[in-house]
């Protein structure tokens, strides 16, 4: 027996230590959950559908993308594909976090990955890098408050959003583009960010004018991704996990 065995805190202490990390995320994501609900209601979703979206997709940016496309009456598969594309970064989080939770039983892994939103990834990586054990109880202690409040606040936003009389005056129709701009800005530390944004902007504007919505999404995205893949390669960054992008504390 080695004296080096890592000390496992009691489940109760582990849960509350995770919970404490979840509280600031709950506070910061509240306005966006309410905004999501309000815009969902404006785009014709029922309170139940908005809540279902928050409870099953549980990814702020992709839920907003879904709403944007629901509003334009585009083909269902394209809405699903766009949600998938926006959440694609989770593949990198998943590969990184998978190394930290090898000791979890299968069912705990299956549950845990569902809750792998940006702040959850960031805190799990931080804990793992500090050499502390990443336990399931600690992980869920952080995940559960964020998840529960995200759902409840979406419902409140949806119930309240249908009552807003003049949506143009309070800018509700243009809040999503501002929000998406903010998300794009939060990725600006990534390599080739500016060329990708410029290529995708130009291609999506041209596609919007000459091909029509919703094709500007796939054509514009393809332009940026192909440009990034075709650019001269920089030096490899070594085996480090993906940086958590500065998307702020949002699910």
């Amino acid at each position: 027996m080695s004296a080096e065995i890592l000390f496992e805190p009691s489940p109760r202490r582990a849960f509350w230590s995770g919970f404490r990390l979840g509280v600031p995320v709950v506070v910061a994501s509240a306005p966006f959950a309410i905004l999501f609900g309000a815009i969902a209601a404006q785009n014709g979703l029922s309170v139940g559908e908005a809540v279902l979206m928050s409870a099953t997709i549980y990814g702020g940016a992709s839920q907003m993308v879904g709403l944007e496309l629901f509003g334009q009456k585009v083909a269902p598969w394209l809405v699903v594909f766009s949600i998938f594309a926006v959440n694609f970064r989770h593949i990198l989080y998943s590969a990184a976090v998978g190394r930290r939770i090898r000791h979890w039983p299968l069912w705990q892994k299956a549950v845990g990955f569902f809750f792998l939103v940006d702040p959850q990834y960031a805190e799990t990586e931080r804990k793992g890098e500090a050499g502390e054990p990443v336990g399931f109880v600690w992980y869920m202690g952080m995940a559960l408050p964020i998840y529960v409040f995200w759902i409840v606040e979406s419902g409140i936003g949806a119930a309240f959003g249908a009552l807003i009389p003049d949506t143009h005056a309070i800018g509700l129709d243009f809040l999503l583009p501002i929000y998406f701009l903010g998300l794009v800005m939060s990725f600006r530390a990534r390599p080739l960010w500016l060329p990708v944004v410029l290529a995708s902007s130009a291609a999506s504007i041209l596609a919007y004018a000459f091909v029509g919505s919703p094709w500007h999404v796939s054509i514009g995205a393809a332009a940026g991704i192909l440009l990034a893949a075709a650019m001269p390669l920089a030096d490899a960054n070594g085996p480090a996990g993906p940086e958590s992008d500065n998307t702020g504390p949002l699910p």
């Binding site: 993308v65 766009s82 500007h216 054509i219 893949a229 650019m231």
Partner: peptide, 27 residues
Amino acid sequence: HPRVQAGLDAVPAAVLTTLFAPALFNA
């Protein structure tokens, strides 16, 4: 493969840009 990695890295910015650029053009 580094080119695949570069493409994957570009996915979120590329997709999200298309969701506001046309709106900007017509604003």
